[in-house]
Design a protein around this nucleic acid. Sequence first.
DNA 1: GTGAAAGCGCTAACAC
DNA 2: GTGTTAGCGCTTTCAC
Lengths: 332, 332
Amino acid sequence: MARVAGVSRATVSRVINGIRNVDPDIQATVRQAIATTGYVPNRAARSLVTRRTGAVALVLSGAGADEDPSPSPLLTDPFFGRVVAGIISFLRPRGIHPVLMFAETAQSRAQVVSYLRQGDADGALLVSTHAADPLPAQLVEAAVPAVLFARPADPIPISYVDVDHRAGAALAADRLVELGRRRVATICGPLDVPAAQARLAGFQDAMARHGHAFVPYSEGGFTYDSGEQAMERLLAERLDLDGVFVANDLMAQGALHALRHHGRSVPDDVAVIGFDDSSAATACRPPLTTIRHPVEGMAAEMGRLLLDHIDEPGRTPTSVIFEPALIVRASG
Amino acid sequence: MARVAGVSRATVSRVINGIRNVDPDIQATVRQAIATTGYVPNRAARSLVTRRTGAVALVLSGAGADEDPSPSPLLTDPFFGRVVAGIISFLRPRGIHPVLMFAETAQSRAQVVSYLRQGDADGALLVSTHAADPLPAQLVEAAVPAVLFARPADPIPISYVDVDHRAGAALAADRLVELGRRRVATICGPLDVPAAQARLAGFQDAMARHGHAFVPYSEGGFTYDSGEQAMERLLAERLDLDGVFVANDLMAQGALHALRHHGRSVPDDVAVIGFDDSSAATACRPPLTTIRHPVEGMAAEMGRLLLDHIDEPGRTPTSVIFEPALIVRASG
DNA sequence: GTGAAAGCGCTAACAC
DNA sequence: GTGTTAGCGCTTTCAC
């Protein structure tokens, strides 16, 4: 390659890496030679000396200590697809690709940390399903640059992006009040998850601001069936409710089913508002009014933060909080 | 590291790479030293000499020449999650991680080929959404080891796994006949997709074997809305139909909606059978009877084939065809 | 069975 | 502004 261009390897390297101090004419010659030979620099050789791989890990992580070999639940969730799309959209223009890894068992978490230390990737983007995930702390300890998708349950010095759950829940409350609903309840997520807590608290607070001191709630597990059951419990308690905020769309879908089963029409008898704006929201009949996170934007921001941490290892952890939006559809 | 164990670097290398010819005692000493120092070999240095990265690319590919920056449609499809889960389950025990890449534009396809040539990955697992995808041929030309998820539309020398679409459609036909349905129709996928063709042909052939010479069909685009519309057309044509085979679950979900809209109960008035056993199949009311591909198993086989091709570059392309299964639920 | 030495392809000091 | 040189950390002949 250097021979073809009639210059030294060092000069070729300078041209490829965009270092100034290279004569424009020579630069052109080298580029020409690159184009005709179809030369591509060897990645391994480069990262051996730069100590950078140009890759980042995208880690999907749970807290389970069990031996579940299948990471399907998260993977099958369209939410994950949006995260990946957002990450890719930021990373691809920069020529870096995410390496996919899973970490649901203690063993696989150790593997992930070991890989990162080995230099398979320069840092990690972490999407956890469970609040009690020990991986973030392990990464901090291993001094691996990392960014989380949501605020960790335990406060640890690590960067993350998140959505303002309280504000989102308040949006739902305002909407129900605006629709003139007076007998409102909510189905919340598992209360050991910080996001679920925040959505419940945010909803209750906003309703209180509108004069509704007490909002009954029923706890679900963020699944279709748990939403259906929670709705059943709510209806058993007070059959005359006319509005319900459900902490995610999947549960809202279940709630819709329970309401139909009881002959309550949506939104005429009962207005239903979900959270997430997942694909479930549009697949539902009626389509769900819901709260949308800017997931793709959040994912892109994760990439940005991670690159900052990689460039400047000592950097202080940062959090970036995004504002959710109300998406009005037919259900409320 | 070599110093700590009191042996040469060469010996450490032999132990790590499991080369025989090493004295068991020395082996133990070295392993001990590895454990105490927490030593991990540098990946870049290793692949510089072995010319292997120990990574494979997982490429999601479309045919679009446009500048759509978002690969969401496929990513958001739970089917993709199952593919990834299957690939991971095979790759992870072997210590190799997939690098995620997208290729929907000519530019991004070129980038993928360039990356593979650059040695970012030893080979590629390709999942295409469109039949006319030019990437497989480009990979063949670049002599990059690659395996496809489905048979390419144009015959090219490349390995792939696929499901026996005709057999799956025949399973659906047999089931409808077994249920005593006499006025049967089908909603097929876009007929430029080989899989859609095979499902239609397989269904028609099997119905013919059961004495039904003619089966009306309506073409959809594998989406919810197109399924709904195709069902509408079918109903306009013959309102008395009592069974329908829909070429994928998403369209079947749309068809269910159209049937409900027309006051036809499922499965009493009309039996509905889908294809894919996607998450849509169980989220539906009633849950869908459908044809299940062993997606995870197929994905794992892709990994196996790819590793074979990487180990033995000259190897003849192979295809592995999987048998689908009928999953009986409430809809038919 | 084990060590010594060469070299994978690149970048980065350092001379010029 | 460009060439020369010295490694990056590993695997792998080749002697012993």
